[in-house]
Amino acid sequence: MSLTAGDVKKIAHLARLNLLENDVTLYTQQLSTILNFVEQMNQADTAEIEPFFNPLDLGQRLRPDVVTEQNQRDAFQAIAPQVEAGLYLVPQVIEGEE
């Protein structure tokens, strides 16, 4: 599997990463090498095999539907990059009237 520079740019966008032009070349080569390497998986016939998602094959544990979390907004927002009036601030997303 060889990726093109266009593929790598698309993957970077999906992962919300910004790549420098020089890095695109490097990652195109490295990611292609890694994908070629993982293609060894195709040596194994897995047609009849069920995927294995949890090492203990345990189901998801459920707990009673009661509130266990306390409000820690102030503690959590104390380490946020930008907050105002209890809200996390980001650049404007929705066009609105000024």
Binding site: L17, V38, M41, A44, I49, P51
Partner: peptide, 25 residues
């Protein structure tokens, strides 16, 4: 990026599901 690619539409079965089957082996 490898993970994003392996989970992206059209590649999920070929990579992620295949790997989870090998995990069972």
């Amino acid at each position: 990026m490898i993970g994003t690619y392996a989970l992206s539409a059209g590649y999920y079965d070929a990579y992620y599901i295949k790997a989870q089957k090998i995990r069972r082996l």
